[in-house]
Design a protein around this nucleic acid. Sequence first.
RNA 1: GCCAAGAUAGCUCAGUCGGCAGAGCAGCUGAUUCGUAAUCAGCAGGUCUGGGGUUCAAAUCCCCAUCUUGGCUCCA
Length: 670
Amino acid sequence: MSDTQITITLPDGSKRQYAAGATIKDVAASIGPKLARDAVGGILNPQDGNDEIIDVHTPLKGDCGLKIITVNKPEGLEVLRHSASHVMASAVQRLFPGTQVTFGPAVENGFYYDFKRDEGFTPDDLEKIEAEMKKIVEANQPFVRAEMSRDEAKALFAAKGETFKVEHIDSIPVDATITTYTHGDWVDLCRGPHVPATGLIKAFKLMSVAGAYWKGDEKNPMLARVYGTAFWDQKALDEHLSKLEEAKKRDHRKVGKELDLFSFHPVAPAMPFFHAKGAFIYNQLIEFIRGYYRVLGFDEVITPQIVDMDLFKRSGHYDHYRENMFLCDVDGREFGVKPMNCPGHTLIYSNEKRSYRDLPFRVADFCRLHRYERSGVTAGLTRVRSFAQDDAHIFCREDQIAEEIGTQIAMMKDIFGHFGMESQVGFATRPQQSLGTEAELSASEREAWDQVWMRAEGSLKDVLDSEKLTYTTHKGDGAFYGPKIDFRVKDAIDRWHQLSTVQLDFGLPRRFDLSYVNHEGGESRPVMVHRAMLGSIERFMGILIEHTGGDFPLWLAPVQVRIIGITDENALYATEIQKKLQSLGVRAKVDHRNEKLGFKIRDAEMHKIPVVLVVGKKEQEARSVSVRWRKRGDLGVMQLDPAISLVLQAAAIPSPGEALMGRVQEVARL
RNA sequence: GCCAAGAUAGCUCAGUCGGCAGAGCAGCUGAUUCGUAAUCAGCAGGUCUGGGGUUCAAAUCCCCAUCUUGGCUCCA
């Protein structure tokens, strides 16, 4: 093999010749000694988008593109973390003989390793493991890659009593090369890649212990998972840890309690009780969305909470979703609490004969939904059993899909712009198992479905392209019943959340035999679009609380203005201002407590009140107010009326922006 | 559901070896009438999540239940 030459193409376009089997180490060494020292891995064929990362030990067997990764580079972090997980596993097996190893990959913010150890691990154990890891790092042991046959590998791990590894070898594809990585005297079955030596793992920390099933399947044995994280240097690790601290401070469960927004009670697990202030925000968000519906031609409907399961049999929920539904018996009939609005909306659609002229038919619904989530998976407001969505369904003709989706994308960008959130688009295409692939279908039926999917995916793609959006395609990630577009938004502390979704549905219209009278007087089947912008109001509130840290924009603040009199003598004037503000729709309260100004200011700050108006003798005589704006501080004294208009300006519910309105007008002209 | 940890005053938390239930903040009362992030004093506040057990004695040890929290394959 070594007599053949291979060509490596570097990112600058230059090509270099090497003997087949050369490694990144060889390539780096041929370029320069510094690169040779700093190289920790490489990306194979960086242009093709697959980003296959290999390490410095992996032989390069054919012509390829190569980008060398050096220390301190973000691309190398997952290599570093995977190596850290090996170091951790070796430390664990040193400290706790008899513990079996399983999987230990790098994950988004660190790494983990799953162990088979019936006793599990305690927080004290983590400290011991960390100390042991430090020793291995200090020893700076090189990672050594080796290839071996399937039987050799099985014999090696069987001899060590590693039954999980042996089991796993059997599930590795036959054509794959089986490799092991060794550092010191510790060897693991591993695909790699790894950093050159343990000494590079300078900054790491073990975070927590958790249970996890072998291969994620709850029928399999429970393993003990240890989570950790690693960075190239201590500074980056410290930054990561302080980010976690920041997230903890903003935790919506904590802020929600402090600001008296909501509570939970054991009598209704995972179902929030919204207090006055939380309910205000909830309703205000809905009002915000209604503003868009008014201009975009959505009509709001209200549908029953509890429905005969017959409806859900027809919609398919009975077969596929019953486990997640709350059921009840009504006069001997089986009823279900609705987990989704769509089946109900199809009834409204088919309540009368529809013409192609009636389409698109858009119905919105803020009704509460209930889903039985398994007891272990609920969390604060972000995963609940009782919630509402800014849900809507569009029934339209196939030729209207592009226009409708385009508007939804524009709406999404407009909405999250108001919250100062950046967004990202994902396009999910037809899954392997999907409508039109059923075994019982005839060839011509399959052919027809293939056409439907192709047209639908084509029109979604056209929209994404014509809106000039950058998006990532998730092949086969669409719903069973149609392709979808998902939006992720980034919050103030750089976390991404999937919120909006726009999904095409060919299934429900067929199940409910929906139709419209077409141009030729015949019957056609409409397409249904499921879409939500904020998603679940509850979850969005949770994210919004963490995004803002509880500092809501003025239009969402339950109390916008607090008026503070300096002494009792200012109480009447303070109340007069409150009444005036209230008459203009401003949510204002007076702090009448017998406390010093400093105390009341502090209290208002702690409650994150956006605007504080201080009135004393001077202001009262001049009919002015001293304005203190949150995050901006003392703005000084001004006359009452200008101060009020200042507040009113910032207090309006944001409305659809110009770009979106322009779009609506264009549509109206068509 | 499973693994692990937790639940003490409205909130945040302390409570040693099993031996009388604690603090700060919030609340209430009184004094103080004060100019931009905490005035002083006093008072009240508890079925230690619920149930069972061990013990002379349980917030503390054991068992069961409930709820909450962190997890439960972005593939060796």
